[in-house]
Amino acid sequence: MGKIREYEGKDITILYDVARCYHATECIHGAPAVFKKDARPWVHPDGEDAAKTAQIIQRCPTGALHYRPKDASLNETPQPENVVTVTEDGPLLARGDFEIALSDGTLRETRAAFCRCGASANKPFCDASHIKIGFHDPGPEAANATGSSVSTGIVKFNPARNGPLLASGSLTVRNAAGELAAQLQQTAFCRCGASANKPFCDGSHQGIAFAG
């Protein structure tokens, strides 16, 4: 868990983990009076109403931004369904109620972007290296399903050493178009970028000596 920068305001304190940010720009476009790309410091917690700021921070797909409000009614709660969205040519975006096993402890989260190209310097999280290396994968097709249940409860993500991202718990997988691709209780997501069965692991990490 990296160093968190804190920006304290009158009604809200904004927390920023720079290592987990891949510049999705939801914050800058949603609250430009709070998040000023070219200013130093770039975060101005009193630039907007605290409720609006909290709402915009919750749009951050990577979990790089979080907040502590003075008003407890603004605290973030996990969305009802645990979902991993496989973005086209990019990371796995997770939303819901989950725990991430890291080398320095367990992180409880509601939002995260997991690397699936194999090149991130901040594994298991995405750092936009997929753009630099030209990673390409459109993601899964929609499943042949007429109905679905809601995936609830805690999902545990465990990045296996030099291997896949193991997921345990009720989880919905969607493609970049938002279509249902799978509903699972346990799975292994590819982290090395080499699987022929993306986004799932097929053991290719062993053949390429993936480290991470």
Rank of each mutant, 00 (worst) to 15 (best):
A101W: 00
A101K: 13
K36N: 07
L102T: 05
F35L: 04
T53R: 02
I56R: 08
G47P: 01
K37W: 08
D46S: 00
E99K: 12
E48F: 03
P45R: 04
T110V: 05
K36G: 09
V43G: 04
A33F: 08
V86A: 07
K70W: 01
G105K: 02
D97G: 04
D71M: 11
T87N: 08
Q79R: 15
E99S: 10
E48K: 01
L92T: 11
D89I: 07
P91Y: 03
G96T: 12
T106H: 00
G63T: 03
T53G: 09
A33P: 01
G47R: 03
N75A: 14
R68E: 15
D71Y: 09
A33I: 00
G47D: 05
D97K: 13
Q79N: 14
T62A: 13
H66Q: 04
V34H: 03
E76D: 14
T110C: 04
V86N: 07
R108E: 09
I100N: 05
L74N: 07
K37Y: 07
K37A: 13
E48L: 02
T62Y: 02
T87V: 02
P91V: 13
L102V: 03
P61V: 10
E81V: 09
R59Q: 14
S103T: 07
P45I: 04
Q79I: 15
R59W: 11
R40C: 06
L102H: 04
T85M: 14
V84S: 07
A50G: 05
T62D: 01
K70E: 12
C60W: 00
P41R: 10
E76R: 12
L93W: 12
E109C: 10
E81Q: 14
V34I: 06
T110G: 04
A64Q: 00
L107F: 15
A54D: 11
P32S: 02
V83M: 04
D104P: 01
R59M: 12
V84W: 12
V83I: 12
T53Y: 05
E109P: 00
R68C: 02
E88N: 08
P80H: 13
D89C: 07
T62C: 14
G47H: 04
I100K: 06
I56H: 10
E109S: 15
E81L: 11
A50Y: 06
K37Q: 10
I100R: 02
R59N: 09
A31L: 01
K37E: 12
D38V: 13
G96I: 12
V34R: 03
H66L: 05
T77W: 02
Q58A: 08
